[in-house]
């Protein structure tokens, strides 16, 4: 699959730290692409560079093989939600979208279409100040869709949403993918990535750790989160298990990788009788990239 958007050795430094270090990512066309990483990994910085909110940076970004530095019009093809969608709370939803329509010469008739997509058509004359958080997130997607962009960049779209809200956003994303759009989601939720995305790039401390297609993984390792009643004794038990590696341990929670070809971990496995294990939950394979 060809890439529609490519970051090439993108770097961004501030006085006291380097937010991005030579990050190179290729986003395939018509994919749901995840930009994954813990807080402070550089995801939002990368998005803000693409959106033109950060003006001083190194490297290059290419959209359809054309560098964005020489063609500012590239942004016509992008719709952004960056952090929490912020609207003019003293205006209603429709007036807010009219403001964005004017910036892209989009006819006002498009407003009804996007509000219908996000399920807010009946609330268009309500002031945004009276909207719930989930409604503002959906209105954020609506404003990103107004000018029918080829690529949607959604920065943590499920942040602060309840399970119903998360499902609604997921439905919208699937619908847009089937319409031929490319969607890039920045998130720190592994479950979200596993659920929605076809490709992923993981950032950590401003560095790219991995950029791959999720569906092609052949790894035999499994990853678990163990909640323990006695942290130290549980660690002692784990150290005696072949094929098991502790990735992270803090408080009463331990994250491990386990070679399941050796022995299943959970059913009649070496931890099934441990008195120090309160619960074991399967984790996404991607969690490995969060830890050294």
């Amino acid at each position: 699959m060809s890439s529609i958007l490519a970051f090439e050795s993108v770097s961004k430094s501030y006085k006291d730290h380097k937010a991005l270090n030579q990050v190179s990512i290729a986003i395939p066309e018509n994919s749901i692409f995840a930009l994954l990483g813990p807080n402070g990994s550089g995801k939002s910085t990368l998005i803000k560079i693409l959106a033109g909110l950060i003006t001083d940076w190194d490297g290059d970004i290419k959209f359809s093989d054309n560098t964005i530095r020489s063609n500012k019009k590239y942004i016509d093809n992008f719709g952004f939600i960056i952090e929490d969608p912020a609207f003019y709370n003293y205006l209603n939803a429709r007036k807010n979208l009219q403001i964005f329509c004017r910036l892209t010469n989009t006819p006002f008739s498009r407003i009804n279409e996007v509000l219908d997509i996000v399920g807010l058509i009946n609330r268009q004359y309500d002031k945004v100040a009276n909207f719930s958080y989930g409604m503002k997130q959906r209105l954020g997607i609506a404003q990103a869709l107004l000018h029918d962009p080829k690529i949607l960049i959604l920065d943590e779209p499920n942040n602060g949403l309840d399970p119903v809200g998360v499902n609604k956003i997921a439905d919208i994303i699937y619908r847009l993918k089937h319409e031929g759009k490319t969607i890039c989601i920045s998130t720190h939720s592994l479950n979200e990535v596993d659920r929605l995305c076809s490709d992923v790039a993981i950032l950590r401390n401003g560095n790219l750790v991995v950029n791959k297609n999720i569906n092609t993984t052949n790894d035999v390792k499994e990853y678990y989160r163990i909640e323990t009643s006695d942290f130290q004794k549980c660690l002692d038990d784990l150290s005696r298990i072949d094929g098991l590696r502790v990735l992270s341990s803090q408080s009463n929670s331990i994250i491990i990788s386990y070679n399941s070809k050796v022995l299943p971990l959970i059913e009649d496995g070496p931890l099934s009788d441990s008195p120090f294990v309160r619960s074991i939950h399967r984790e996404s394979d991607l969690i490995e990239y969060y830890y050294d």
Binding site: L53, I75, F80
Partner: peptide
């Protein structure tokens, strides 16, 4: 303060 520049300035203007 309200963060509206994030959406306003990420437009082709």
């Amino acid at each position: 303060a309200k963060g509206t520049f994030r959406m306003y300035l990420s437009r082709p203007v």
